[in-house]
């Protein structure tokens, strides 16, 4: 067990040469929520907690907070198109932690519980977090999830990755979600550490998610990002996310 832990701690040391990134192709996403449910499963998220969500949007809305927002459907329900018949628009935007390079959550955390690894992953030490939720106030993307009351689990007990996982001595994953701390998408640090891809990437039935190393010019993510046209959420805020989106390229009907 001890040797196992030591091995895991080395993940942080091998990392600096890498820059992990994810590219999500919004042309491919059909809004099936498979990635969101897979995320719940692998991270054992309690009922009512979602680290990863698939939002119903009009195409290409979220790249800037200044873009005039299309009025969302009054119901606030998913899968309801934007606009009025026959000029309807619909696209999906999967959102989890954007793994920012200049992360507001890292800057505000008073106890350095939230930290950024050199390979670009933003992680939380669940043993250190005091639960002040300042990071939730600071994150522009609303992806941080506080554990309010421990939570209720779906029947069947613990699923997913079943062990504590440490990075440089920080507890960044634990199978039972701890009460009173903030949690979020970890880029599946424990899977990436053993050479696997994040579980949402694995599980997407349409191959809309690509994961890889931006420092490797031949990787698929590098090609997609360097090709131009990859967007980031609320890019004008300067948070420099490591999650990129390929914008919807299909023709949008003109306003009548």
């Amino acid at each position: 067990m001890a040797s196992k832990r030591k091995q895991k701690r080395q993940v942080g040391q091998t990392a600096p040469t890498r820059r992990y990134a994810m590219v999500i192709d919004t042309n491919r996403c059909v809004g099936c929520w498979t990635c969101a449910v897979a995320c719940k499963e692998v991270n054992n998220e309690p009922l009512g907690y979602w680290w990863n969500r698939v939002l119903t949007t009009a195409p290409n809305q979220a790249w800037s907070s200044q873009s005039p927002a299309a009025a969302p459907p009054a119901s606030g329900n998913i899968d309801v198109p934007y606009g009025t018949y026959p000029n309807l628009q619909l696209a999906y935007l999967p959102v989890a932690c954007q793994q920012c390079n200049d992360a507001p959550c890292v800057k505000v955390c008073p106890v350095q519980a939230t930290f950024r690894r050199d390979d670009g992953m933003v992680l939380i030490d669940y043993d250190r977090c005091i639960g002040c939720r300042y990071c939730m106030a600071a994150c522009p993307y609303g992806v941080r999830i506080f554990n309010w009351g421990g939570g209720e689990y779906a029947p069947g007990g613990i699923v997913g990755y079943g062990e504590d996982y440490y990075v440089d001595g920080h507890l960044v994953f634990t199978p039972v979600r701890p009460k009173g701390v903030v949690e979020k998408c970890t880029f599946c640090v424990e899977r990436v550490g053993v050479g696997e891809k994040p579980f949402c990437v694995e599980s997407c039935p349409l191959g809309a998610r690509v994961f890889g190393d931006l420092n490797d010019p031949d990787s698929e993510v590098s090609e997609l990002v360097n090709d131009g046209g990859a967007e980031r959420l609320l890019s004008e805020l300067g948070t420099e996310p490591n999650v990129y989106y390929l914008p919807v390229a299909r023709r949008v009907p003109a306003e009548s």
Binding site: P72, V80, L93
Partner: peptide, 17 residues
């Protein structure tokens, strides 16, 4: 806090079931 910057249906999970 009421209106998050990224605000599309279904919104944010509130953390209770």
């Amino acid at each position: 806090f009421v209106n998050p910057l990224i605000q599309y249906p279904p919104g944010n999970a509130i953390g209770t079931y």
